[in-house]
Amino acid sequence: MIGELLGIGRTADVYALDDGRVLRRYRDGSDTAGELAVMTHLARHDYPVAAAWPGTAPGELVMERLAGPTLREALASGTTGPEEAGELLADLLRRLHAVPARHSADPAHRILHLDFHPENVMLAPRGPVVIDWATADEGEPGLDVAMSALILAQAAVTMPAVAELARALLVPFLRRLEPPTAGQLERVRAIRAANPTLTEAETAGLGQALELIRAAL
């Protein structure tokens, strides 16, 4: 039975279930089959994702209920510092990009998260777990690095409540990874600009965010 509402995201709501699991329900009814397939593939390669099962409707996904704070919450409380968080994010991306693609014949292509940031890392008792695979795709690993950097930089220039933390995290994150190319940064800027869930201020801040990334590099 569906229980209390646990969280509201930009595209989906998460409800408690009475069996220790949660229900992720997309408000537009988006089919979760692809997301489930990616998570299953990653789990087979020992990547830290939540256990997941199909829901009763195309727009639903059932997952294990994870305990613990998000990495963003740990940063905000001071239990995790920017250097440690940057190292953790970089390590999780490196591990992700070691997993082979499911469909692409290009040997350089890997699974990409494309929405990888501190809110999508849960610090569970068993270790960090990466959540929210709705935007997952396959392609050049540098695109994932570029997108994460852009999300952090965008938060630094458009979200006063988290700006200081996002700015402090950007440099240690980028320092531990191969830097994205100018072309990759422009590609993710276009993807981000087309995202209908962004606010007008967030979209307007993309140019300033790219400047911040270039300065960090």
Rank of each mutant, 00 (worst) to 15 (best):
L5V: 07
L6N: 08
G7F: 06
G9V: 09
T11W: 01
D19W: 12
V22L: 12
R24C: 04
R25N: 05
D28P: 03
G29H: 12
S30C: 06
S30V: 09
G34R: 12
E35T: 13
L36M: 10
H41R: 10
A43V: 00
T56E: 15
A57C: 10
P58E: 05
M63L: 15
A67P: 00
P69F: 07
P69R: 06
R72Q: 15
R72A: 15
T79M: 07
E83F: 01
E84C: 00
E87W: 07
D91V: 05
L96P: 01
P100K: 13
D106V: 03
A108T: 11
R110C: 08
H113F: 09
H113D: 07
H117V: 04
V129L: 09
D132P: 01
G139Y: 10
G142F: 14
V145D: 01
A146V: 13
A146M: 11
S148M: 09
Q154T: 14
V157G: 09
M159Y: 02
V162P: 01
L165R: 09
V171H: 10
V171R: 11
R176A: 14
L177D: 00
E178L: 03
E178A: 11
P180V: 12
G183H: 10
R187A: 15
R187W: 06
V188C: 12
V188T: 09
V188P: 02
R189W: 05
R192S: 03
A193E: 14
P196Q: 10
P196Y: 11
T197Y: 15
T203M: 06
L206V: 04
A209D: 03
L210I: 12
I213D: 00
I213A: 04
I213G: 03
R214H: 08
